[in-house]
């Protein structure tokens, strides 16, 4: 059962990667990478249950937040050419 869910999520990640590699605009790539990150969270959570180690959920929690902050940081870099100023 967990395997089926993991395969579904993996296929989605693969499709997001294809979109991230093919572009065509930089925003397509950012969108695809953001989606890839969301799916990574699901993947980690399901993997934790599959291998009987629910401690993985802590990693998933951290990954949700890092994924969000990373997307915003990349966007800021794309728009302003630097991250540090407002």
């Amino acid at each position: 059962m967990f395997i089926a869910a993991m395969i579904g999520v993996l296929i989605t990640m693969l499709m997001a990667l294809v979109r991230a590699l093919s572009g065509p605009t930089v925003f397509d790539r950012i969108l695809a990478v953001n989606m890839f990150g969301t799916k990574t969270v699901l993947f980690i959570a399901v993997l934790g249950f599959l291998s009987g180690r629910p401690e993985f959920l802590d990693l998933a929690l951290v990954y949700v937040l890092i994924n969000f902050i990373g997307t915003i940081a990349i966007l800021k870099f794309v728009r302003f050419g630097k991250v540090e100023t407002a």
């Binding site: 059962m1 967990f2 089926a4 869910a5 993991m6 395969i7 579904g8 999520v9 296929i11 989605t12 990640m13 693969l14 499709m15 997001a16 294809v18 979109r19 969108l31 695809a32 989606m35 799916k39 699901l42 399901v46």
Partner: peptide, 20 residues
């Protein structure tokens, strides 16, 4: 939970298809 997991995985795959 089996039904929810497979529905969720299916919807994820649909979204991935849509993004392509």
């Amino acid at each position: 939970s089996w039904a929810l997991l497979s529905c969720g995985a299916f919807l994820c795959a649909v979204g991935g298809l849509g993004i392509l």
